Amino acid sequence: METYTAMRHFADIWGLLAMAAFFVGVVVFTLRPGSKQTAKEAADIPLKDD
Rank of each mutant, 00 (worst) to 15 (best):
20 A>P: 02
13 I>A: 07
2 E>M: 01
15 G>S: 02
24 V>H: 03
7 M>D: 02
38 T>G: 09
28 V>H: 07
21 A>G: 07
47 L>D: 09
44 D>S: 08
16 L>N: 08
30 T>R: 15
29 F>S: 13
31 L>S: 14
10 F>E: 02
3 T>H: 03
23 F>E: 03
44 D>Y: 14
35 S>F: 13
44 D>T: 10
21 A>D: 06
21 A>I: 04
3 T>E: 07
1 M>L: 08
16 L>P: 12
28 V>A: 11
48 K>A: 00
37 Q>I: 11
26 V>D: 04
14 W>M: 13
8 R>F: 01
49 D>N: 05
14 W>F: 13
3 T>S: 06
43 A>S: 07
42 A>S: 14
48 K>L: 10
50 D>G: 00
18 A>S: 11
3 T>M: 06
43 A>V: 06
33 P>S: 09
46 P>E: 04
25 G>E: 02
42 A>V: 14
10 F>H: 04
33 P>Q: 09
36 K>W: 14
36 K>V: 15
23 F>H: 04
36 K>D: 15
24 V>D: 02
7 M>C: 05
13 I>C: 09
4 Y>M: 00
32 R>E: 09
42 A>Y: 15
26 V>Y: 09
4 Y>R: 00
14 W>R: 13
22 F>K: 05
10 F>N: 03
7 M>V: 00
33 P>R: 07
14 W>Y: 14
46 P>T: 04
18 A>F: 13
37 Q>H: 09
3 T>R: 07
5 T>Q: 01
48 K>M: 09
28 V>M: 12
23 F>V: 05
20 A>T: 07
13 I>P: 13
39 A>S: 11
35 S>D: 10
37 Q>D: 13
25 G>N: 06
26 V>T: 05
25 G>Q: 00
39 A>Y: 10
28 V>S: 07
4 Y>K: 01
23 F>R: 07
15 G>M: 05
43 A>C: 08
41 E>N: 08
1 M>H: 09
12 D>S: 04
11 A>E: 06
9 H>C: 03
1 M>T: 02
35 S>N: 15
45 I>W: 13
21 A>H: 03
44 D>H: 12
31 L>K: 13
35 S>Y: 12
13 I>H: 10
13 I>K: 11
30 T>C: 14
23 F>P: 00
27 V>C: 03
9 H>T: 00
9 H>Y: 06
43 A>T: 05
25 G>A: 05
31 L>I: 14
49 D>V: 07
25 G>I: 01
16 L>Q: 10
40 K>H: 11
26 V>R: 08
50 D>F: 15
14 W>K: 12
25 G>D: 02
36 K>E: 15
13 I>Y: 11
